[in-house]
C-alpha cells in the first residue's frame, strides 16, 4: 500500500499523520506539496490538520482550490479513498467531497482537549478494526468544527449510514458536555455516499501510539492498511 499526504502552507499535522500511517503501513507515505498539480498513483490520500492558508475567507476555502486539490477531487470522485482530518475535513467539505459545512465553534473558543466519540458504523475501509458502538478517545484541536447540515441533508446522512462518529460521554451517551463545538446531532465525522471519503474533526494520528498516552487512533490506520493492502 502507498499513501500520499497533501501538505498546504499552514498544515501542521502532516508529519504526525505520516508517522502514524507509516507505522501501520510499514513505510512512510509520500508527502505532496499543494502547488504540485501531479499526484502519484496511491491507494489512499490524506488531507491533514492545520490551518491551510491561515483559514482565510473560511476554513478550508482557499486550500480547496489549490492546484493539487483539482486532482485530489477528481480521484476522490472516481472512488479513491480519502481521509480528511480536522482542517482536512474543512477542505473536503469546501471542495464538495463531503456534505455539510464546518462553522466556528458554538462557544467561540478554540477547543483543544481529548473527546470521546462513538463509532456509528463499522466494516468500512476506515473502521474495519472498530466495533459498531465502540467508544474511542481522541484529541480535538480546532476553532471551526461545528458541523452544520440542513434537515434534509441530516436525514440523508442517517438514511445512507453516512454518520461515521458522534461525540459522546465516556459511557457512549450523548449530552453532558460531550459535544465540544455545537455540531448538529453531535456529529464528529461523516462519510461521502460511497463510504470512500471520511472527514472527521478528532485527530486519530495524535493518539496512535501508547507512548503518547493512548492508541485508540491506531485502529483507523490499521483498518486502512488491512482494507487497501
Amino acid at each position: 500500500m502507498q499513501a500520499a499526504v497533501i501538505v498546504f502552507p499552514g498544515s501542521n499535522c502532516d508529519r504526525d499523520v505520516a508517522v502514524a500511517l507509516g507505522a501501520s503501513m510499514g513505510r512512510p507515505p509520500l508527502m505532496v506539496w499543494h502547488g504540485d498539480s501531479a499526484l502519484p498513483a496511491v491507494d489512499l490520500i490524506v488531507i491533514p490538520g492545520g490551518f491551510a492558508y491561515g483559514d482565510y475567507l473560511r476554513a478550508g476555502a482557499i486550500a480547496a482550490h489549490s492546484p493539487v486539490m483539482r486532482e485530489v477531487v477528481a480521484r476522490a470522485r472516481a472512488g479513491a479513498p480519502l481521509l480528511a482530518i480536522c482542517n482536512g475535513f474543512q477542505v473536503a467539505a469546501e471542495s464538495g467531497l463531503l456534505p455539510g459545512a464546518l462553522l466556528p465553534n458554538a462557544g467561540l473558543k478554540f477547543v483543544c482537549r481529548d473527546v470521546y466519540i462513538r463509532t456509528e458504523s463499522s466494516g468500512g475501509i476506515f473502521t474495519g478494526h472498530y466495533q459498531r458502538g465502540q467508544v474511542i478517545r481522541l484529541p480535538v484541536a480546532h476553532h471551526a468544527g461545528n458541523y452544520h447540515i440542513d434537515d434534509d441533508g441530516l436525514k440523508a446522512l442517517e438514511d445512507n449510514g453516512q454518520v461515521a462518529f458522534r461525540y459522546c460521554t465516556p459511557g457512549g451517551e450523548p449530552g453532558d458536555g460531550a459535544n465540544p463545538n455545537g455540531s448538529r446531532d453531535d456529529i464528529a465525522g461523516v462519510y461521502n455516499e460511497a463510504g470512500t471519503v471520511l472527514g472527521l474533526m478528532p485527530h486519530p494520528e495524535r493518539l496512535a501510539d501508547p507512548r503518547l498516552g493512548g492508541d485508540d487512533g491506531k485502529a483507523m490506520f490499521d483498518s486502512l492498511v488491512a482494507a487497501l493492502g
Binding site: 475567507l57 473560511r58 482550490h65 469546501e94 459545512a101 452544520h148 447540515i149
Partner: peptide
C-alpha cells in the same frame, strides 16, 4: 458560487 460564499451556509 465557486469561492466567495459557501452556499451550504
Amino acid at each position: 458560487g465557486r469561492l466567495l460564499a459557501n452556499t451550504v451556509i
